[in-house]
Amino acid sequence: MTRDEIRDVVRRTLSAIAPEADLGTLDPKGELRDQLDIDSVDFMNFVVALHQELGVDVPEADYPKLSSLDGCVAYLAAKVCAS
């Protein structure tokens, strides 16, 4: 799976948990939580959806690595390649 494909999955997942958000204006390096105003339940839905899409199980201790779009892609790409 390429990084672009992973980025697409992340964006699709984000638009499912924040359907009202305009992802076009998303700063890939900025905090997702602040930009999309997502709360802990949304974030949990995000992590579960990523798991379902990519088969990646993100331990709780790694949640901070998913704080930005770029962070998600880098972290998930490493995980997907490793598995």
Binding site: A16, I17, A18, P19, D42
Partner: peptide, 8 residues
């Protein structure tokens, strides 16, 4: 989780 998702 489901409730928040549906509300969203």
């Amino acid at each position: 989780l489901a409730l928040v998702q549906r509300a969203r």
